[in-house]
Nucleic acid binder design. Structure first.
Lengths: 141, 141
DNA sequence: CAACAACTATTGACGACAACAATTGTTTCA
DNA sequence: TGAAACAATTGTTGTCGTCAATAGTTGTTG
């Protein structure tokens, strides 16, 4: 009979939980959650995004995006701007404060992952990251 | 600025979510959830376990174990027996029906993980599993 | 150009899930 | 014997993910 940790899928599930908890603990003092942070980081990679694009790219429900952007606006990290060519849409952009926040927390954020991956050497972390990335990208299709 | 998937910890978080969803979809018809299944599989590796042992080994809160064992008892897959030397404790054991259920679903369960790891070759899956296992076990200490 | 279908953001409801605190009954030990 | 520790349980809280419904806007088509 197979043991508990014999299954890679289950291992992923458990480690995913742990990773999320670590991130949330790190973000606690800033008042943000992991999902806010992911949204911020995504905003930093582009000029601005419609909320439905955020929903599609981050994999969060559109209704979840509403609350997340609300929170980020309250903190001054992001802004909603009207879309020039479609009055239904809003364009969400990172503010200077948001950019500064990312800069300030970037190093600490990296350390969270380093803590998690502590038992692995540098080359092994590279390998792990590459493998996970392949799986993640395959699922987006 | 680092992209969204540049962080291994975040990748783990997202893939863990996806893995859990896949498992739960597979278990849907049986009326169980991922955590029930994990508990059943753990029970199959030993003769019987106190609930606090289940809690410690699976990493679930003791209060969570209560509900899980309740459900499994209702389905006839597990049983609570009084501990002979401590009337506070209950020993949870797998029933024949539980064992049969595991036998019947074992193959399908494996396929869930195979679906998830579809983009990887056999050797790569081995590597991934070994790396994840190291991380998981380091965290139990 | 008027009616209709599709889309965007939003709100609200619901169940699932995980983490904590508090309670009851039992055991251990000083 | 009394106090502390422990096992299982109940209840509570907050987050998460999904779904349904709505208002406002756009695009299409008859």
């Amino acid at each position: 009979m197979r043991g508990l940790h014999a299954d890679t899928g289950y291992l992923l599930y458990r480690l995913g939980l742990r990773s999320g908890q670590l991130f949330n603990a790190f973000l606690q003092e800033s008042g943000l959650r992991l999902r806010h942070y992911a949204l911020l980081r995504f905003l930093a990679t582009i000029e601005g995004a419609l909320q439905r694009e955020l929903s599609a790219r981050l994999g969060y429900d559109p209704s979840a995006i509403v609350g997340l952007v609300d929170d980020l606006e309250k903190l001054g990290f992001a802004e909603r701007r009207p879309s020039p060519d479609d009055r239904r849409s809003r364009i969400v952009v990172l503010t200077d404060e948001g950019r500064a926040f990312l800069r300030d927390t970037d190093e600490t954020g990296l350390r969270v992952t380093q803590d998690l991956l502590e038992p692995l050497g540098p080359a092994e972390r590279e390998t792990l990251h590459a493998l996970l990335l392949r799986i993640a990208e395959a699922g987006l299709a």
